[in-house]
Structures are given as C-alpha cells and as structure tokens.
C-alpha cells in the first residue's frame, strides 16, 4: 500500500533531481569531497587505535589497517590471573565511580550557584562572577605542589579526604570545576525568561519549588552538557590522580593505562589500545547521544539566540 507521503517527493529531492551532474559537482560535490577528506583526517587516528587493539603482534606492522582481527588483548585485560599486577577491572570501576560522582555533584553545585548569580541581586555578585572567571584560569597543573601539600596536611588529621582517598580527589575536582561550570550555566540560565519565576512566585511556589521544578527542567540541556564535560574531563585526567593516588588498585584508567607503555622494555601497544578503546567508548557514546545539546551548551553563554 502506498501512502500519500511516498508519492509526493520532498522539496529536497526535487531540487537535487533538477540539478545537472555538473552543477551538482560545482555546488555540492566538492563539499562531499572536502567532507570525506576531513572525515578521514578525523577518523584515522581512531581507526589506528582500533586496528592496533586487534593485532596480535602489538603494532600494525603490515601497514594495512584491520589486517588482523584478534580479540585476545581485550580478554587479557580482564584476565583474573593478571589482576594482581595490574587490576584493570578495578581501574574501570574506580573511573566510573569517580567520574559519575564528580559529574553529578559538580552539576548540582554549579547549577545552584548559577541560579543565584542569574536570578538574585546581592552585594558582591559582580565581583563573585569575576572571581569565578579569573579563578578558573588557574589550571590545576599550576597548583600541583599546593594540592599535594594541602592534601598531605589533611591526611594527617582527616584521612577520608586526604592523599590516596577517593574523597580527596573528588573534592579537588569539584573545587576546580565550579568556576567553569557556573560560568557556563550562568549564560544559559539568563536565557530562561524571568517572567516564569515571577508567575510561579505569585502562585505561591517556594524558591526551592521554582528552582527544582521549573528552572532546572528548562535548563536540562546545559545540565547534561556540564555533566558530560565533567565526566569526560575526569576520565581523561591523569595528572591529579597521579598526585593523589599511589597504589595501583586506586588508579583510574587514565593513570593505569600508562602502565602498558611506560616501561621501556615491556611496552604493549596492543593492550594499551584495547584499554583505550574501552575507556573511550562510553565517553564517545555519551557524546554522540547528547550531541544536539552540546552545541547549544558550548555556545549558550556566548551566543544569544
């Protein structure tokens, strides 16, 4: 059975049918060509990782990608017998736990602060915003020595937040992510009309009801983006974990993976690449899933409209 829709071609099809091959090449064809070249550039290192992770020899020696299809590297990573030397399974769990807690907590805290900056007028508001923007320009790498010093002081008196603890690392992440997160959300919160809050207020809603039931739902995209950026940032970070953690069973993936390539005489690129694929897959999947929010999130503060 044919429906009306199938009989009527869409506008786009009409346009393309009317185009002569020469015109197509001039207007659209070259764009496809550029698209293919750029796609190759973008894809190639990733294909290289994927291909290497599937080789038995440990490198793409023949020079042809995907000439081998060997899943042994993946199974070896989770091999229970090897977990004692390099607890890969633990690394996966640690990474997911730290990155998830950090993503949720940083969104929660930043959204609270962004709401205050966007909707309320108080003394020190402008100064506070300026401080946030300035403070986020102090990257954690500049403060490594201080971070180590402060954490080792905390370790003496309150170990649950000190060196070698999950809590300590998360606290440092949260302190660092607040500036960027609040600033990113602040722009987005401003795009939600104020009349909405006022209408709700007149209807007798409390400020928490307005915040949780109205505002947060309207800014959901930016919450997703901030959570995702924070998640990616945590998964990708190897510097802070290397300062805070000192036992292999505490490592995150980013720190643990270096184990496979840092020893000069026992480098195992295939295992490293297999670990890299496992690390990157959820991140990339999340990214693709939330893709449509990301553009609006990244430009939310800057691009009005």
């Amino acid at each position: 059975m044919t429906t009306l829709n199938e009989l009527e071609p869409t506008d786009r099809v009409i346009k393309q049918r009317r185009m002569s091959p020469l015109k197509w090449a001039r207007t659209l064809g070259w764009k496809h060509l550029v698209g293919i070249v750029v796609s190759l550039y973008a894809l190639f290192p990733i294909l290289y990782i994927l291909s290497t992770s599937l080789t038995k020899a440990g490198s793409v020696s023949s020079g042809v990608l995907f000439s081998d299809f060997f899943l042994g590297n993946y199974t070896a990573l989770f091999d229970p017998a090897k977990q004692h030397d390099r607890p890969f399974t633990r690394w996966v769990i640690n990474t997911v736990v730290i990155a998830s807690i950090n993503a949720v907590a940083s969104v929660f805290i930043s959204a609270l602060a962004a709401y205050a900056f966007s909707r309320m007028r108080f003394i020190g508001r402008r100064g506070g915003l300026m401080t946030l923007i300035l403070i986020q320009m102090f990257p954690s790498i500049l403060g490594l020595v201080a971070i180590y010093g402060i954490l080792s002081e905390i370790t003496k008196y309150f170990p649950p937040l000190g060196l070698g603890s999950l809590g300590g690392l998360i606290m440092i992440y949260l302190g660092g992510s607040l500036g960027g997160g609040t600033y990113l959300m602040y722009g987005f919160f401003n795009t939600v009309p104020k009349e909405l809050d006022e209408a709700a207020k007149i209807d007798g809603a409390t400020h928490t009801q307005i915040y949780f039931k109205i505002i947060l739902r309207l800014v959901a995209p930016i919450l997703a983006v901030q959570a995702l950026l924070s998640f990616i940032g945590t998964v990708s970070d190897y510097i802070l974990p290397s300062v805070v953690f000192n036992k292999p069973e505490q490592y995150t993936l980013a720190l643990g993976l270096q184990f496979f390539i840092d020893q000069p005489y026992s480098q195992n690129w295939a295992m490293f690449c297999a670990g890299a694929v496992i690390t990157a897959t959820p991140v990339v999947a999340l990214f693709m899933f939330l893709q449509r929010f990301i553009t609006s999130g990244l430009t939310g503060g800057a691009v009005k409209g």
Partner: peptide
C-alpha cells in the same frame, strides 16, 4: 544557593591558589 559551591571553592581552589 551559593554556600556549597563557595565553601568548596575556598577549601579546594582558592586555598590552592593562595598556597601556591
């Protein structure tokens, strides 16, 4: 609304900047 963030910021970011 600001307290949780500000406390974390002071303890784990501003203190780091000043300590540096």
């Amino acid at each position: 609304y600001l307290a949780p963030g500000v406390i974390l910021l002071i303890c784990f970011q501003i203190s780091i900047v000043f300590f540096s």
